Measured scan of single mutants.
Amino acid sequence: IGSLMYASIFGNVSAIIQRLYSGTARYHTQMLRVREFIRFHQIPNPLRQRLEEYFQHAWSYTNGIDMNAVLKGFPECLQADICLHLNRSLLQHCKPFRGATKGCLRALAMKFKTTHAPPGDTLVHAGDLLTALYFISRGSIEILRGDVVVAILGKNDIFGEPLNLYARPGKSNGDVRALTYCDLHKIHRDDLLEVLDMYPEFSDHFWSSLEITFNLRDTNMIPGSPGSTELEGGFSRQRKRKLSFRRRTDKDTEQPGEVSALGPGRAGAGPSSRGRPGGPWGESPSSGPSSPESSEDEGPGRSSSPLRLVPFSSPRPPGEPPGGEPLMEDCEKSSDTCNPLSGAFSGVSNIFSFWGDSRGRQYQELPRCPAPTPSLLNIPLSSPGRRPRGDVESRLDALQRQLNRLETRLSADMATVLQLLQRQMTLVPPAYSAVTTPGPGPTSTSPLLPVSPLPTLTLDSLSQVSQFMACEELPPGAPELPQEGPTRRLSLPGQLGALTSQPLHRHGSDPG
């Protein structure tokens, strides 16, 4: 009997000691992992102490058991019943959930998450997105703005933001810190809205009876308010094209079509300037034949640059190039080494500058006005007194259609001029006259002087055409309008007829 009692007592005591040691061994194993994590990542002392304290409290609170892992091991129907039991206190005593059906309560219970916070733990920081609604079931918390405590909340209090009033989550206007050990039930806004969409009859009752104890939403960050730039940057990543407008005076608003859609830094370009900076079609017209890549860069430059609305530039004389043409100036200075066709295309550029300027006046029909002061630039669209967005969009579309028509007509005119030049060069190729044979009589004449090349004649003739079109064909006081194609086609051969009437002889060394 004594040996039996000794064996039973010894066996029970050893089993008890073994169970104690097993729990202690698990605790030390998990604690060792936490300390190894702290050492590996070199976490500083204040945060390291918070980690160790939280682990110790969580171990004593749950005995080292992962409740979520245990809950996920059950089937979904059983999980709903378990969640309904775990959140029964909240669902029974909170006013917004009263009167809900059994199915609605089960769906809500599945969406709730339980959070346990030790003292000093910050649940929400200032500036964080308010993605959830919090219900306090135990403990107390404090809300701070800077170093000032603005509120202390306790059991059955609710904090967050009214989700039904805002389409997008706002930002917190303060820090939420736990004063004691707290148990909180939180539900994400997407989950709550999903359940309320499934039960629309409960939705009206819920929003009407929901009383948020403390609204954390920062009202200064609401979209459309003066301080909402940061919020707009976070939620409006896919922005449309940006529009900046110059201020319109009362006198300017009476004149229709007073602005032109141009790229940034293009205030001095012609009315047909689009795409790359520098001139019509993204580059100076005089350098068009020598740089074919300008047409390839036109599309990307047009689509990537934001639109700006600026006044037209001052008018340019008909014979003056659009500006920024070092290529043609070098050719004029060193005409001995340049291609003979460069002079002809220089005359073509003069005609283009004249036609572009006159067509700009035809479509816009307003006098040039000086540029406004820099303080009046970049007025935002949302400022008071601005035109409605639809009106601005319609004006932009009208300007775009005008620019497209202008570009089409300029292309047709350019093709006409090039065809005339090619026809003239085919009839009378460039050549130098040879020395004529002296006559049989004693009164022999001296050799004839060489005839100037055709490109120079073409430049003079085209300059005469531009001056003739600019000065004589337009009646005084009438708006400057571009001439039609047949009129220009008839004027060019008439001007060139006198020049080509002389018999030109080919030089023996000319390969053409």
Rank of each mutant, 00 (worst) to 15 (best):
D128M: 01
D128F: 01
L129T: 15
T131G: 09
T131I: 08
L133N: 03
Y134E: 01
R138S: 12
R138D: 13
S140Y: 07
S140F: 09
I141T: 01
R145C: 03
G146P: 01
G146C: 04
D147M: 03
V148I: 07
V149L: 06
A151P: 01
L153R: 01
L153Y: 01
L153A: 03
G154M: 10
K155T: 13
N156S: 09
I158A: 12
I158T: 09
I158M: 06
F159L: 06
P162T: 04
N164M: 08
N164E: 06
N164C: 09
N164P: 06
L165N: 08
Y166D: 11
A167W: 06
P169M: 05
D175K: 06
D175W: 07
V176C: 11
R177Q: 04
A178R: 03
L179F: 05
Y181H: 15
H185I: 09
H185R: 07
K186S: 14
I187Q: 01
I187L: 09
D191Y: 01
L192Q: 02
E194T: 07
L196A: 03
E201I: 01
E201S: 06
F202W: 13
S203P: 01
F206C: 02
S208E: 04
S209W: 04
S209A: 13
L210D: 01
I212P: 03
I212L: 11
N215P: 01
R217V: 04
R217L: 03
R217T: 09
T219Y: 12
N220K: 07
N220C: 13
M221V: 12
I222L: 11
I222D: 12
P223W: 06
P223S: 09
G224C: 08
S228Q: 13
E230A: 11
E232Q: 12
G234N: 15
F235N: 11
F235Q: 11
S236P: 10
R237C: 10
R241I: 09
R241C: 08
R241S: 10
F245L: 10
Q255K: 08
G257N: 10
E258C: 13
E258P: 11
L262Y: 12
G263K: 14
G263V: 11
G265T: 11
G265P: 10
G265N: 08
A267H: 09
A269K: 07
G270P: 06
G270T: 11
G270R: 13
P271R: 08
S273M: 10
R274W: 04
P280S: 09
G282V: 13
P285D: 12
S286Q: 13
S286D: 04
S286M: 03
G288F: 05
S290D: 03
S290F: 13
P292I: 13
G299T: 14
S303R: 10
S305K: 12
P306R: 09
L309Y: 10
L309V: 07
L309D: 14
S314T: 07
R316I: 15
P317V: 08
P317H: 09
E320Y: 12
P322W: 12
G323H: 04
E325A: 11
P326W: 11
L327H: 14
D330G: 12
E332H: 10
K333V: 12
S334A: 10
N339H: 14
P340V: 10
P340T: 10
L341F: 04
A344F: 04
A344M: 07
V348P: 14
N350H: 06
F352Q: 13
F354H: 08
F354A: 08
G356C: 04
G356Y: 13
G356Q: 07
R359P: 09
G360R: 09
Q362R: 09
Q364Y: 07
S375D: 04
L377H: 12
L377F: 10
P380F: 03
P384V: 12
R386S: 08
R386N: 15
R386D: 13
V392S: 03
Q400P: 03
N404F: 15
R405I: 04
L406E: 01
E407Y: 03
T408L: 08
R409A: 06
R409C: 08
A412H: 15
D413C: 01
M414C: 04
A415D: 12
V417G: 01
V417D: 08
V417H: 11
L418P: 04
L420G: 08
L421W: 01
Q422A: 09
R423A: 07
Q424T: 06
Q424K: 08
V428C: 06
V428N: 04
P429C: 09
A431K: 11
S433D: 09
A434K: 07
T436A: 08
T436R: 10
T437C: 13
P438G: 10
G439L: 06
G439V: 12
P440V: 10
G441E: 07
P442Y: 04
T443L: 06
T443N: 13
S444R: 10
T445H: 14
T456L: 11
T458E: 12
T458Y: 06
D460P: 07
S461G: 11
V465E: 12
S466D: 14
Q467Y: 06
Q467V: 06
Q467E: 04
Q467T: 11
M469D: 15
A470L: 08
A470P: 07
A470N: 12
C471D: 12
E473Y: 07
P476A: 10
P482L: 10
P482V: 09
P486N: 15
L492M: 06
L492E: 10
G494R: 07
L496G: 09
G497T: 11
L499W: 06
Q502P: 13
Q502R: 12
H505K: 10
H507A: 11
G512A: 12
